[in-house]
Design a protein around this nucleic acid. Structure first.
Length: 271
DNA sequence: ATGACGGCAAAATGCCGA
């Protein structure tokens, strides 16, 4: 049995008490974190250690940042996937003349499962260079995922995190609102569907069907109390791992109250 | 039409998020 969770925490330091409290009561074996928003030397390893979790973290600045916390082993850590694209923040700024490979992907083998904690680029706007970066990033990740399954069709792989894509119309509170925005475009949905075609499946959706079932709610405009959210955080499991899924939930309670992340944790149980 | 809220830092405004 393995209980695996993923959570975009929107700063692990400002959310630390909430994250540790949640771990203490949620019986989680492996937690993938996104948007830790800190460098490695700023990560609060001690609090996770005290709670019984080893942590592998990747963070180079105040943006992005991904981690895996595990109480069932943490082996073969890999930061970034092969060929992970970088983003040129400002081609005219010599400080960032070289594209920066963001801290958006980290992997570790935990309890026999190869877990990838992923923070897919936002895309910002369809006309923004960040949108092409997002599509390229997903395509290069897919190249890797396809190869992993070709190399070993029985591989137990979990691609988890903030995908920044709403794969179906049920996954946004308003199709009209997102019509001219990122997250619902045909290109992004095709990029997501490519993983499904390759054999990875959303193991949460059968246990948390929509419409109106979300993992993210904007802090502004009373989006949470108005139930106006998006389903953009996913656990995609390889065929061998998906066959082991027995339960899943989106912990909407954790979005409540002061000091909440704008994302809820997502939990899957494997037999 | 725009901003909202929230986090971070070479911080008191700008960048980023979705």
């Amino acid at each position: 049995m393995l209980r695996l969770a993923t959570w975009n925490v929107n700063s692990v330091r400002s959310r630390l008490d909430r994250v540790i409290d949640w771990l203490d009561r949620s019986d989680i074996d492996v937690l993938a974190l996104q948007e830790t928003k800190c460098r490695d030397d700023q990560f609060p390893y001690d609090r996770f250690d005290a709670a019984g979790y080893e942590v592998a973290h990747a963070g180079i600045n105040q943006w992005n940042g991904v981690a895996i916390a595990s109480r069932v082993g943490l082996e073969d850590v890999q930061i970034a996937f092969d060929g992970q694209p970088g983003f040129d923040r400002d081609a005219a700024d010599t400080l960032f003349a070289e594209p920066v490979v963001d801290s958006r992907a980290i992997a570790a083998t935990c309890g026999g499962v190869r877990v990838w904690s992923l923070y897919v680029p936002n895309g910002r706007a369809v006309t923004d260079p960040h949108f092409e970066y997002k599509l390229d990033w997903l395509a290069r990740l897919h190249d890797n995922a396809e190869k992993w399954l070709v190399d070993n069709p029985a591989a137990q792989i979990a691609l988890v995190g903030d995908w920044n894509i709403a794969p179906t119309d049920d996954d946004v509170w308003s199709v009209e609102y997102f019509a001219d925005k990122t997250h619902t475009t045909p290109q992004e949905r095709a990029a997501f569907d490519a993983f499904v075609t390759t054999g990875f499946s959303d193991v949460v959706r059968p246990y948390a069907p929509g419409p109106g079932v979300f993992t993210y709610w904007d802090y502004t405009r009373l989006r949470f109390p108005r139930k106006e959210g998006m389903k953009i955080d996913f656990v995609l499991a390889s065929p061998a791992l998906a066959a082991r899924a027995t339960a899943a939930l989106i912990d909407r309670e954790e979005r409540k109250g002061t000091g909440a992340s704008d994302h809820a944790p997502v939990v899957v149980e494997f037999e």
